[in-house]
């Protein structure tokens, strides 16, 4: 029961967060300089056409009325039309979001797995050369923005060494598997098209790794310090002292309590992957949602900007709830606290 209550509470809070976010992005996108309709139609469009479109999009009405139209549409699942693609924003999202989710999920897995692994090894063998190497990697990883990695990898592994493809999601010769989820790897897996699966993964390596490195460094740092702290805890000494094999103690009794802070940070880092994807997608010419978003902002495509930010907000909220659930699953102190209604 405690878990359901926890989730319920978080969901209710999330509604308020998203509501606030929608007002904020609505205002910000509208106070930016420049006339969106003029930008969409071009400098040579006649004034009456511009006026027509303004009325059609309710841009001639006061802000609160515009917001009312937008919100009532959004609640029905209609996020309006893109000024630029001239399609429903919802359709654009359906096309571009899966590519980004695929990339970000892949990066997230790399980040979590290698971050925890590096941190655990460094913590277990603290103050050895392994630990020092991980520490140097962490410093570099934390301070370097992911677009710098992206450019370096693109040049080194893409152009100089030619180990990895430099752009897009699939090689020209490969037919794209039938669209089910929109994620090429998943679709290829479901339809049994392993050539496409391999090729798609190959294309994802460079962008995903450059995205993941920053978060990976962060996870490694956090995991390292909790592991090396917890190694000195009495409960570890006690477990060993009772004759439980040391490897078993490390893998079970040390790892689980040490993962709690890492998982909390993982949620934040996963959300920032979406943000960093904006530039990385641009560099690798990845036809994704973040690239769509950046174009929308540059062109002042009002509905698209609002939609992109709202979708990111929803993903953020979902990831945070998931993280809270995992942390509650790992840590009975939180779970039992929630049960007591604290």
């Amino acid at each position: 029961m405690g878990i359901l209550k926890l989730v319920g509470k978080r969901l209710v809070l999330s509604v308020f967060v998203l509501f606030g976010l929608s007002i904020l992005i609505f205002l910000i996108s509208r106070v930016l300089p420049g006339d969106p309709v003029r930008m969409a139609l071009g400098p040579r469009a006649p004034e009456w056409a511009v006026q027509n479109m303004r009325e059609q999009m309710h841009l001639d009405k006061p802000l609160y009325a515009q917001y009312y139209y937008w919100l009532s549409g959004a609640l029905r699942g209609d996020l309006g039309q893109s000024l630029f693609t001239r399609r429903a924003v919802v359709d654009d999202i359906k096309e571009f979001l899966p590519a980004t989710m695929e990339l970000v999920l892949f990066a997230g897995v790399i980040m979590a797995v290698f971050g925890i692994l590096l941190g655990a090894v460094a913590g277990r063998y603290s103050n050895t050369w392994v630990d020092n190497s991980v520490r140097i990697f962490s410093y570099v990883g934390v301070v370097t923005p992911s677009f710098v990695f992206a450019i370096l990898f693109l040049l080194l592994f893409g152009y100089v060494l030619r180990w990895f493809p430099t752009a897009g999601r699939l090689s020209p010769g490969i037919t794209r598997p039938q669209v089910i989820t929109g994620m090429v790897t998943l679709d290829a897996l479901v339809t049994g098209n392993f050539a496409a699966l391999g090729d798609a993964l190959w294309h994802m390596v460079l962008p995903a790794v450059s995205l993941a490195l920053g978060g990976m460094a962060q996870e490694a740092r956090i995991t390292r310090s909790t592991i090396s702290d917890n190694l000195r805890k009495d409960y570890i000494a006690a477990a060993k002292g009772f004759g439980i094999p040391e490897r078993f103690v490390t893998l079970k009794y040390l790892l689980k309590p040490s993962l709690i802070p890492t998982v909390s940070i993982l949620g934040l880092d996963f959300a920032s992957l979406l943000g960093n994807a904006f530039l990385v997608e641009l560099i690798f010419n990845w036809p994704g949602f973040s690239r769509y978003g950046i174009n929308a902002m540059l062109r002042k495509d009002l509905n698209a900007v609002s939609a992109v930010v709202m979708v990111l907000g929803v993903v953020f909220v979902i990831v945070n709830i998931l993280v809270d659930l995992v942390v509650a699953g790992l840590d009975p102190r939180i779970r039992l606290g929630a049960e007591r209604g604290k």
Binding site: Y235, A238, A239, G243, F248, Y253, P257
Partner: peptide, 19 residues
């Protein structure tokens, strides 16, 4: 401090007995 906070008493005690 001597009991692991994230495992049940049963889990810990039974590991001790088992090993």
């Amino acid at each position: 401090a001597a009991l692991n906070p994230v495992f049940t008493i049963g889990d810990q005690l039974m590991s001790v007995i088992k090993y």
